[in-house]
C-alpha cells in the first residue's frame, strides 16, 4: 500500500522555502535551534530535522510551554526558532510577550498557515488576527514575505537580526515574484511597480494579487504603484509618507483582518504624517471558512478585482477631497 501524498511537500510554498533556507543556513548560525510542536511536516522544518537532528527540539502539541522554553534557550545563549501554525502562535502569545519580548530575547517565531491561505482546514485554522496581535507587543518585529525568493532572504535577515521576530510563511504554493537580484531588508518596503495615480501597499500573499490588480487598473488607464511591505513592524514610514505625497491615495491589501494589521500600521503612519484617503482590503472583521485559497480570496473580497475596486473607490474619494480643498 502506498503512503498518502504529503500536501506539505508542495513545491514553492513559503513554508517549504523557509524550511529549506533554514536548513541550508544552519551551519552559519551555530547557536540556531529549532523548536517544533509536532507539525514539522507542515511548517517546513522537516528539512532541518533531517539535516540537523541534534539541534531540533520536539515539544509535542504544547505551544505555551514551547514558546516560553524558547525564552530559556535564548537566556543561555542559543537562538531558538519557534515553529508552528499562525493560529497556535496566538495561543502562546502571552508567553511570547513575557518570556520573549519583555525579557528581550533573541528568539524567532516563524508561523506557517496564516490567513485564508490555509484553505480547506477552515475558519478555526485561519489566523486573521496574528499581525495585529504580535504588532501590539513592544519590541516585536513583524514580517510577512511575499514569495519564496524573499522568504529565503528574510530567513537570513531574521537570523542576523538581534531581537524577537514574528514572521509569517504560507501554506499554499505561491508564484515567484522576485529574481535573484531581489533585496530584503527588515523595516524597508519596496516599490515593485511604478505608477503615480495611487499606491497599493501589500504584504504576503496579497502582493501577487496587488500586481494583478495593477494590471486590471491599467486597462482603465489607471497607473497604480505597488509597494511590497514585507515588514509590518517597524513599518517603513518614510516610504508610506512618500507614496502618499506622490500619489495622494493609498490602498492596503493583506490576508488578515482589516483591523490592526498592515492597514492599521499604514493608516497610523499616514494619520501622523501625511493624511490622505485610504481603502483597506482584508477580511472584514469576520472569521474564515473552508474552501480553496483562491475561492476564499474571492468570497472574502481580497482577490485582485477587489483590490482594483478599492483603488477606484479611493481615487473617487481623493477627487472629492480635492474639491473640498478648492472651496
Amino acid at each position: 500500500m502506498s503512503s498518502p501524498a504529503l500536501i506539505a511537500s508542495n513545491g514553492d510554498s513559503l513554508r517549504e522555502a523557509f524550511g529549506k533556507a533554514l536548513s541550508a543556513m544552519a551551519d552559519e548560525f551555530p547557536k540556531l535551534v529549532v523548536l517544533d510542536a509536532d507539525i514539522a511536516g507542515g511548517t517546513g522544518v522537516h528539512h532541518f530535522r533531517k539535516s540537523h537532528p541534534g539541534r531540533f527540539v520536539q515539544f509535542g502539541i504544547a505551544e505555551q510551554n514551547m514558546m516560553a522554553a524558547a525564552g530559556g534557550m535564548a537566556a543561555v545563549g542559543l537562538m531558538p526558532v519557534v515553529t508552528t501554525f499562525a493560529v497556535f502562535c496566538l495561543r502562546a502569545i502571552e508567553q511570547a510577550r513575557l518570556s520573549l519580548c519583555y525579557a528581550r530575547r533573541n528568539a524567532k517565531i516563524v508561523a506557517s498557515h496564516p490567513g485564508l491561505d490555509v484553505g480547506p482546514d477552515g475558519g478555526s485554522a485561519q489566523a486573521l488576527e496574528d499581525l495585529a496581535c504580535f504588532r501590539a507587543i513592544p519590541g516585536m518585529t513583524v514580517i510577512s514575505p511575499a514569495d519564496a525568493t524573499e522568504m529565503a532572504l528574510a530567513t537570513r535577515a531574521i537570523l542576523e537580526f538581534d531581537g524577537p521576530v514574528y514572521m509569517r510563511t504560507g501554506r499554499s504554493p505561491s508564484p515567484r515574484l522576485f529574481g535573484d537580484d531581489h533585496v530584503f531588508r527588515i523595516g524597508k518596503g519596496q516599490i515593485i511597480r511604478q505608477g503615480d495615480d495611487l499606491t497599493i501597499i501589500a504584504c504576503g500573499a496579497e502582493v501577487a494579487r496587488a500586481l494583478a490588480a495593477a494590471d486590471l487598473l491599467l486597462r482603465d488607464g489607471i497607473q497604480a504603484r505597488v509597494v511590497n511591505m514585507a515588514t509590518i513592524k517597524p513599518i517603513d514610514a518614510e516610504l508610506v509618507a512618500r507614496c502618499a505625497r506622490e500619489t495622494g491615495a493609498i490602498v492596503t491589501a493583506e490576508d488578515h483582518n482589516i483591523h490592526g494589521g498592515l492597514g492599521g500600521a499604514v493608516a497610523e503612519t499616514l494619520a501622523a504624517t501625511t493624511p490622505c484617503p485610504v481603502e483597506f482590503v482584508g477580511v472584514k472583521d469576520v472569521f474564515g471558512a473552508s474552501g480553496e485559497p483562491e475561492e476564499l480570496a474571492h468570497h472574502y473580497e481580497i482577490a485582485a478585482p477587489h483590490i482594483a475596486a478599492a483603488a477606484k473607490r479611493v481615487l473617487k474619494r481623493r477627487r472629492a477631497d480635492a474639491r473640498v480643498k478648492i472651496k
Binding site: 535551534v33 541534534g54 539541534r55 527540539v57 505555551q64 510551554n65 514551547m66 514558546m67 516560553a68 522554553a69 524558547a70 525564552g71 530559556g72 534557550m73 535564548a74 537566556a75 543561555v76 545563549g77 542559543l78 531558538p80 502571552e94 508567553q95 513575557l98 518570556s99
Partner: peptide, 16 residues
C-alpha cells in the same frame, strides 16, 4: 511560564 523557561534553559545548557 517560569518552569517552561527553566526547561528551555536546561535543554539549552545540555545542548552546549
Amino acid at each position: 511560564q517560569g518552569i517552561s523557561v527553566a526547561i528551555g534553559m536546561a535543554i539549552g545548557l545540555r545542548l552546549q
